[in-house]
């Protein structure tokens, strides 16, 4: 899992059935102190947790499909937690 900042939304009406209801965001990976690292990536939000400007935790690769109720979705990254505070 990694920490990221939601910086954009991807709007799409035509999606495969497995992710039809799911929102897609652009997430910029950041360090806990807030510096940007790497390039932004597209992340699915199956639990409807995030909005633009939120700090989130996302999970990548095979485990990303596990964030969906069905466990079956063609996504490479999913948001799993909305961060309130880092101490």
């Amino acid at each position: 899992m990694k920490l990221g900042l939601v910086v954009g939304v991807v709007w799409s009406t035509k999606k495969v059935r497995e992710i039809n209801w799911c929102r897609m965001y652009i997430v910029q990976p950041i360090s806990t102190s807030g510096e940007e690292i790497d390039t932004p990536l597209v992340v699915a939000d199956p639990k409807n947790l995030a909005a633009c400007g939120d700090k989130v935790i996302y999970v990548t690769s095979t485990d990303a499909s596990q964030a969906f109720e069905s466990g079956f979705a063609p996504v490479n990254a999913s948001i799993v937690e909305l961060v309130d505070k880092i101490v």
Binding site: L82, V83, D84
Partner: peptide
């Protein structure tokens, strides 16, 4: 390094320390 505090999370993360 740091602890992440969060109230809205995926069900699998409930009750776990991140």
């Amino acid at each position: 390094e740091k602890k992440i505090i969060s109230s809205q999370k995926h069900d699998a993360y409930k009750g776990k320390i991140v």
